[in-house]
Nucleic acid binder design. Structure first.
Lengths: 144, 144
DNA sequence: GTTGATGCAAATCATTTGCATATTC
DNA sequence: GAATATGCAAATGATTTGCATCAAC
């Protein structure tokens, strides 16, 4: 279990929400996925444990988790949003258009760029979870 | 008319497609929008000229234009894709979460970042039309 | 016992598709 | 005239919502 049981329960609690079995299962399922997980994957994973859980419950739980900052969303452009457990270190992602694999990069990689934009345009970039597409090293070698 | 009549007709033609009245209207409508235009806006604009045109025709035409590189898509996260006529100079966009206004920034602004990612991770970033969210100078002043 | 959460079914919203007809070349 | 586009209507796929029942506190 990647998430800290106590923290998410306390967070829910503080916001006037209840700690339920299904919410626990759903959060576990998000953690179980490495990197971004689609709602469908979360749903399937949860369903394996509890056959009666409904898609709408998963949607509602994920929306709540995002609202409370426990989970981050990323739009990887494939029609459905993807979810990821919030990690202590802010980061971004590189998604390879060739093999589909994704890798994390630290927030530092973008710092210089956002600083530049801030200085030049007075615009404060607030994208805390960016997804960049391209070709990874391996795929790049195959198709130059 | 921002687009060059001859170029898009030739492009269509070369790819074995036909030049139709509705495609011309749709491309005009995309040009008429400053920055990104939603499909709904394009549709509404075209409808003002031709009351019989169908949404599916707009979807089909836009898909074709994107495929041929005449139009670019951007996912601004609001549920619907947005479209923009392809301009000679590659660029990206800053969208303000406060007032919704968007501004263009040159591709150079990201160059340093993509170079860095390339050197560090061997990953070739291929996002040619990125949308960054944040707060513009004016909104930034109002809510610090 | 209240209040908030869940399951179910039906609704919504953006986008796609099948098909008969109309248009371009 | 042959091949491609269009309009229409119906299908799809992701996400949301209304509501009666159920579980957490």
């Amino acid at each position: 279990m990647t998430h800290h049981l106590l923290r998410w329960e306390a967070t829910l609690w503080a916001a006037g929400h209840r700690v339920t079995r299904q919410r626990a299962l759903i959060l576990d399922a998000v953690c179980a996925g490495e990197g971004h997980t689609s709602l469908g994957e979360v749903f399937a994973r949860v369903r394996r444990v509890d056959r009666t859980i409904d898609r709408s419950t998963v949607y509602r739980a994920l929306r709540l988790f995002v609202e409370l900052g426990l989970v981050l969303t990323a739009d990887t452009g494939g029609g459905e949003l993807r979810y990821e457990i919030t990690k202590p270190h802010p980061h971004h992602h590189l998604v390879c258009r060739g093999c589909g694999r994704e890798q994390e990069i630290g927030a530092d990689a973008l710092r210089a760029m956002t600083d530049h934009v801030s200085r030049q345009h007075g615009f404060r970039v607030a994208t805390d979870h960016l997804v960049l597409f391209g070709l990874c090293a391996a795929c790049s070698r195959q198709m130059p």
